Amino acid sequence: MTPYAVLILLVIAERFAELAVARRNGAWSRARGAREYGAGHYPTMVALHTALLAGCLVEPWVADRPFLPLLGWPALALALAAQGLRWWCIGTLGPRWHTRVLIVPDLPLVTSGPYRYLRHPNYVAVVVEGVALPLVHTAWITALGFSLLNAALLATRIRCENSALAPSRSLSVPGAAP
C-alpha cells in the first residue's frame, strides 16, 4: 500500500469520526427542538465527498500519476491545514456542529474561534481539501471535478444555511430585540 493510499484511508477514518460526532451532536440538537433545513441536498453532498475520496485513490492508480514533490508536499501541507481548520470549527461549535443543517431555536450565532473571522470557515476547509488532497498525488481530474461540482453544491448549501441562521443573527447583534 502506498503512503498516499494510507493518507486517504486515514482521511476516510477521520470522516467516520466526524459522522460519529455529528450523530451525537444531532441528538443533542434535536433534543433541544432543532429543525433541519436542506435535507434534500444532503445525499448529494455525501455522494460528492465519497467520490472525492474514491477519485483520490483511483485516479493516481488508473492514470499512473506520479508523486511530484514540488506539487505533492505543498498540497499535503494544505490538506493538513484544512483538517486543522475543520477540527477548529468542530471544537468551536461544540454540540452545534453537524454535517446537516440543524438549527436549535433561540441560540445566538457562534462568533468565536474561526467564526470570528469568517461566516463559513468549515467550507473554506472543504474547498482547500478538495483541491489539495487529490493534488498530493497529481490527481488533477479529481481536484478539478470535485471543485466544480462542490462550488455548485456549496452555493446551495450556503444559501440554505444563511436562510436558516437568519433568525439567530438578530440574537447576536448588540441591541437587537430579544
Rank of each mutant, 00 (worst) to 15 (best):
V126M: 08
A125S: 15
P108Q: 01
Y37K: 03
C56Q: 13
R24W: 06
N25S: 09
I141C: 04
V58W: 10
G94S: 08
A155E: 12
W88R: 10
Y115H: 12
G175V: 00
R116Y: 11
R96G: 00
L171D: 01
N150Q: 15
R35K: 14
G26Q: 01
A22H: 03
L68N: 09
L52K: 09
A164I: 06
Y117C: 12
E161R: 11
T111I: 11
L133P: 09
P74Y: 11
R157E: 06
V126K: 03
G55L: 07
L109N: 01
W28Y: 15
Y42L: 14
T50I: 12
S172N: 03
C89N: 04
P74I: 01
L85I: 15
L10S: 15
P3Q: 10
V124E: 04
S163P: 00
S147G: 15
P121T: 10
L171V: 07
A79M: 05
T138Q: 15
L7Q: 04
A152F: 14
R24D: 06
L52I: 14
V21K: 00
G26C: 02
V46H: 11
L153N: 10
T142D: 07
H120C: 13
H137P: 02
W61P: 08
L93K: 03
A176H: 10
E14S: 14
T142C: 08
E161D: 14
Y117D: 08
F67P: 06
A51V: 07
L68E: 13
G26R: 02
A177D: 08
R169T: 04
E14T: 03
V6L: 15
G55Q: 09
E14K: 11
A82E: 05
P121W: 06
L165P: 04
P121D: 00
L70Y: 11
R159Y: 01
G94F: 02
